[in-house]
Amino acid sequence: MTEPLLDVQGLTMRFGGLLAVDGVDLTAERNRITALIGPNGAGKTTIFNCLTGFYKPTAGRLLLRHPTRGPIELQTLKGYGVARTGVVRTFQNIRLFPSMTVLENLLVAQHQALMPRSVFSLAGLLNLKGWRAAEEAAVDTARDWLRRLDLLAVADEEAGNLSYGMQRRVEIARAMSTNPLLLCLDEPAAGLNPRETRALAELLAGIRAEHGIGILLIEHDMGLVMDISDHIFVVDHGARIAAGTPAEIRNDERVIKAYLGEPDADDAAHAGGDAH
């Protein structure tokens, strides 16, 4: 087996006196869906925030094995720098650009690729051929993802006017338009109906099969997690308590005790959402 795409070692995050994440190790691989689960307030979103550059971890090493740029220590990068390495996320409480159209949202996502092609905006201002080609390519990428996520019909609508389920899909399409290496999804199934959840499962399985990227997933919908994950990490009280395949996790006593053992945990998670 090759070395994992992402290698997190001893990730620790402290807010004042509160130890939110305590020495967590985890990995994510290409062509694999890795799930991060745990009860409310376990520290999952905090791990995500550290990983995607929104928090500076107190300690720990976040190593990304970039296929062209070599190993990158994500914790040393500035917030926006992490996304430029190809680690791109979605948010638990959807963050679209609400008064821009869906298509514009997807074009903003391609900022990194388009910016050099606009040559300090000069080529763009003069509407030169090279720029036009780049813009058309970007629109094509966006169109592909819109088609894939069944959003073509609403491409010219304001993103903020769409239904909740559609907004979740736009966020995933936007993240995929950046052509990521590792897609981090924070509760993508929250608020979706069973049919939408099934479609999401198919979509994620499809991305895993076709795009050669890693997917890291925080999710409370255990059906979905057990269904599509290749590997699962369980955290509780900021610490990793188990890791393994869905079958192993299902039978892990500590996990059952901490989490699955409480039959209401799943429902409560849906009602309340995760703590930050």
């Binding site: 995607t52 550059g53 929104f54 500035k78 917030g79 926006y80 720098g81 992490v82 996304a83 430029r84 791109v88 996320r89 948010f91 963050r95 679209l96 650009f97 609400p98 008064s99 821009m100 514009e104 074009l107 903003v108 996502a109 391609q110 900022h111 990194q112 388009l114 910016m115 606009s118 905006s121 763009g124 201002l125 509407n127 936007r174 950046t178």
Partner: peptide, 29 residues
């Protein structure tokens, strides 16, 4: 009017809408 259609102009508007989402897409605010 032209700039609004270019990456820089779209980034301006995106920044107005949500700075955090901008950072998550690799845009340097």
């Amino acid at each position: 009017a032209r700039l609004r259609r270019l990456p820089i102009g779209r980034a301006w508007e995106a920044l107005r809408e949500d700075e955090i989402a901008c950072r998550s897409l690799g845009i340097n605010p």
